[in-house]
Computed example of a mutant assay.
Amino acid sequence: MRSDWILDVLTDLKTFATANDLPVLAEQLDDTAIVALAEIAALHEKTQGETQHERQLEPGGSGIGGAGAGGHA
């Protein structure tokens, strides 16, 4: 799911705040955008990590029970 749409909304809100002489709100929206970027990045990393873990657990993957784990001597 694409979650960076929120950054577009925050940018629009900041533009409105700036155009309507609301400098404190505009600054707060900058801070909020930084928080949103950090959380989106963390979510993306978590999702990528889970996807990688799922691939390793699939038959033939590099996880336990995958190819090469048969114990043939």
Rank of each mutant, 00 (worst) to 15 (best):
S62Y: 11
T18C: 00
V24D: 03
L43A: 13
L37R: 12
S62L: 15
L22K: 12
H44P: 06
A19N: 04
S3M: 15
Q48S: 06
K46D: 01
H72D: 12
I34T: 15
A36V: 15
A41Q: 07
V24S: 02
G60K: 13
S62P: 11
T11I: 08
A36H: 07
T47K: 11
A17N: 10
R2T: 09
L10S: 04
I34V: 15
H53R: 06
D30V: 15
I40L: 09
E50Y: 12
L43D: 13
T18Y: 00
A36T: 15
L10G: 01
W5G: 02
W5Y: 09
A67K: 05
F16S: 01
L43F: 12
D4Y: 03
Q48F: 11
T32S: 05
A19D: 08
V9F: 03
D4I: 04
Q48H: 04
N20Q: 13
L25R: 01
T47D: 08
E54A: 15
N20R: 07
A67E: 05
A33K: 01
I6P: 06
E54C: 08
Q28N: 13
T15W: 02
V35Q: 09
A33D: 00
L13F: 02
E45I: 09
A69M: 11
T51D: 14
G60F: 14
L10W: 03
G68K: 08
I34P: 01
V9H: 02
D12V: 01
D4A: 05
A38I: 14
G66N: 10
D4T: 13
N20P: 12
D8E: 02
A42S: 06
P59R: 09
I40C: 00
H72Q: 13
S3A: 13
Q52F: 08
A26N: 04
A41E: 11
D4P: 03
K14Q: 04
L7Y: 00
G49K: 07
G71C: 15
T15G: 02
A36R: 05
A41N: 07
G63F: 12
G68T: 08
S3Y: 13
M1D: 04
E39V: 14
D8F: 01
D8M: 01
V9R: 10
L13R: 00
G60V: 14
S62M: 12
A38W: 06
E50V: 13
G63Q: 05
A69E: 08
D12C: 00
G60C: 15
H44W: 10
A26G: 08
D4H: 08
W5K: 09
A19L: 04
Q28L: 05
Q52L: 12
A33I: 01
A19I: 02
G49M: 08
T51I: 15
D21I: 03
L22C: 11
Q56C: 12
V9T: 15
A67M: 11
I40M: 03
